[in-house]
Amino acid sequence: MTYLYFPGCSLRSTGRAYEESLLAVCRKLEIPLHELDDWNCCGATAYVSIDETRAFTLAARNLAIADHLPQPDGSDPQILAPCNACYMVLAKTHHFMESNAEVRAHVSTALHAGGMTYTGQTRVRHPLDVFVNDFGIDRIAKKVVHPLKGFRVACYYGCQVVRPFSEFDHPVYPMTMDRLVTALGAESVDWPMKTRCCGGSLTGTIQEAGFRLNRALLKEATKRKANIILTCCPLCQHNLECYQQRINRRYGETINLPVAYFTQFMGLALGIPAKELAIQRLFKPPLSPAPAGKQEIHAHA
């Protein structure tokens, strides 16, 4: 099964650490990826609230490209979309194309004008789903070289990967990432904010609102004694990581939590060198480079 890798705009810009670590992990696990030919921006959550038809067309174009790239064994193509927003938009487009005749008609006409046809065979997958369900937790556990003891992880899923198209996990209490980090040797913290909104782009537009949401998440994670938050979305990671000092100043808190991508965490456990996992791109790396020759990983106290 070769997955059609859809980086989306963020993974090539602010989310570079996600891409680099994801690709490194896939290489290590020998999961074949092929970047989707000529992919375009998915439109994210903003576009669909401006012009639904165009937004669906934009996203559907990617699906239509994938439709014509079936597997050698004839099975349906599968797009791997790491960013939660891309995942949700592509899944939503697929759902509407299947169930809403009007959308289907508009989008098909538009695509047809560009010489493309949409067949609906392509499935949209998230790396969490692929690693845990396709590749298998047991196989990953066997490949762990540095069990990540001492890490108490607050798994943060964000909202878009589990709602409303929660194909692979529970919409309110998901456990996929938690099971993954446990298999990597760490401890997963039980906290009630796993899928509570991080504010999305509000931290850029109405900062007050964005900060309030992020403060609640960070504070609760700290209260539950987590020493790292792992995310699976570039915007979630950005929001949770980048504004801690400003939140502290505004609200008088003392939050100081590293926030990394779950793929970086996986990579560390699998023994991939930190540089390949773009650890250095994090504001608060969860590891300090050891004296030359020996790679050590320790929890951020």
Binding site: V172, W191, P192, M193, A216, E220
Partner: peptide
């Protein structure tokens, strides 16, 4: 909507 133990 939910019952939670998160204290705001």
């Amino acid at each position: 909507a939910e019952v939670t133990d998160w204290a705001a």
